[in-house]
Amino acid sequence: MRRFFLLLALACATSQWLAGASLRVPDHVPAGQELSIPTGGSGEATLYLFGPSHVAKRRVKLGSPVVLAGDELVNAGRYVVVLNGESSTFFVTAGPVSTLAFIARPSRVPAATRDVVSGTVFLFDRNQNLVLSPQPVSFSLSVTGAPDVQRTETSKGGIAWTRLDSSRRAGAAQFIASAGAASVRRVVQEVASEPCNIRMHAERAKGGAIELQTDPIRDCAGNPVPDGTIVTFTSVDQSGRSTVDARIKRGIAQAELPESRQATISVAAGVVIGNEIRWGGGQ
């Protein structure tokens, strides 16, 4: 009797070995790639596949390889395959970088400012899995008429980031992030800073009014202050104070103030004050 149980246990162990020992899978499989799992034994068995976003169950023939299609392995993560009472675990890893999510901040920056532009890149494969393995990511910031600013960073945990200086020249800077075959472009508007020096001149208009016009208004780096910026002309004379909030157009601001025998005329934009003219009494 004891010999009978010993033989039965040995037979079970042998059958288990024949069926289960054949469920051998690699530790890591690239996402979206077909996987063939060799099986031993004969007859049919039920295969279960548990993944991060996919579960499958099907009958398979033992003795011939079981094929898991690429569609079943698109999401990176831990997978468990169970066949005939045996289970095995493997990891699906992200494929090569295919797309980038690029966040560039801010969308407008003053020109000639240090560490003012930040770029953050998230790396994804073609199945939108975060590529966790370190990847070189290059950042480039270029504006017409100024040398490009370039930097290469290595991603960590699927993310790469950088901080760059804005160039001295104002304009729409092209901020490009590239990794592998993927590349994404954002536009960062580099704008002039505060006006550096406002200078105006006055002339008598035909009707006697005072015609005022500034020289081209620029910041201290020589960039023209954007059109539309408010420039306030103020005239103070015996009849009171007159003001015109003019807009810079094509780099200059101009306005017409009422006729006056003697007036003090000033100009300002934001917190910056320009020259003063004493009308009627010489400048």
Binding site: G240, R241, S242
Partner: peptide, 12 residues
């Protein structure tokens, strides 16, 4: 739009 421009004259 940047227009119109309105002057404020002879404030007193």
């Amino acid at each position: 739009a940047a227009d119109p421009v309105i002057g404020v004259l002879h404030q007193r």
